[in-house]
């Protein structure tokens, strides 16, 4: 199957190149008023387009096999980011730095499996992927994933944490790009695209419409982070103390939602 798909792709690429070429030639010939040539080229173009249509007929699916199991890919991305993150961000980082292909749907089911696994045999795995917890009610924060081995206060989301988390992620992404380039390599286009996208929402982090500069992003994000960091930490530490005091080993990881509470009660 992989072999066949490869052939088709090559064939398609060639055909597309040919089609583009022919279109250009037709325009040139038309500009030159060479009607006979235009007609001949048109016929060729139609033939190429038909062949392209035909080549597309067979089914083909991406055949790349992920290098790591999904939960490990997620772990890798979260470790890079260093803060509880939304699935979209995890997917983007995974794509930008690890050439992975995780989908958001896969992540949703992953979270359920983790909790089930922990409940059946606690701490059987070296780490679990768990939700971040809200500072106010210590319930699971919607859509944010964290790693169980992180300190409690890192896994807490206070009112300022969405912003500090974003700024921290931007810094971590920029630092990782710097690491890659410093080591003589370079980061992928996707990595720079991700950084630029994030930088556009940080005051002073970009100039013009070009690709963002990692050093500039780091200093701009740092400058804003300083403003929020102290009170964000205070909030999270205070909540972490409450969590350690009040929650059991399951809810400490997966949150004290009303649902979890009623389930553990039964």
């Amino acid at each position: 199957m992989g072999q066949l798909v490869g052939c088709v792709t090559v064939e398609l690429d060639d055909l597309e190149e040919r089609i583009t070429e022919l279109r250009g030639e037709i325009r040139l010939a038309k500009a030159g008023g060479d009607d006979a040539k235009v007609r001949r080229l048109r016929a060729e173009l139609r033939k190429a387009e038909r062949a392209w249509d035909d080549a597309l007929e067979p089914d083909f699916e991406p055949d790349d096999v992920p290098l790591l199991p999904i939960r490990e890919q997620v772990h890798q991305a979260l470790t890079l980011l260093g803060v509880p993150s939304a699935t979209k961000m995890i997917v983007a980082v995974n794509e930008a730095f690890f050439a992975g292909r995780v989908t958001t749907t896969q992540l949703t089911s992953l979270r359920r499996d983790e909790e089930k696994s922990f409940r059946s045999s606690p701490y059987a795995r070296p780490y679990y992927l768990c939700p971040a917890l809200t500072a106010e009610l210590l319930s699971p924060a919607r859509g944010l994933l964290a790693i169980s081995t992180w300190p409690m206060d890192v896994r807490i989301i206070g009112p300022l944490s969405p912003r500090t988390g974003f700024l921290t992620s931007a810094i971590r992404v920029a630092e990782h790009i710097t690491r890659l380039t410093g080591a003589g390599g370079d980061a992928s286009t996707e990595a720079y695209r991700l950084l630029t996208r994030m930088a556009r929402n940080i005051p002073g982090a970009t100039e013009g419409f070009g690709r963002a500069d990692p050093a500039r992003v780091i200093s701009a994000a740092d400058a804003e982070l300083v403003v929020h960091l102290e009170s964000d930490r205070r909030h999270r530490r205070e909540a972490a103390e409450r969590a350690t005091a009040r929650l059991n080993e399951v809810t400490r990881l997966f949150g004290a939602g009303l649902k979890t509470a009623s389930r553990s009660a039964s």
Binding site: L137, P140, A141, R142, P162, E224, H228, G257
Partner: peptide, 15 residues
């Protein structure tokens, strides 16, 4: 710049 605090009221403790 300091005005960033965020509260989500999509649910209250999962409810």
């Amino acid at each position: 710049i300091p005005e960033v605090a965020y509260t989500d009221i999509a649910d209250v403790g999962g409810n």
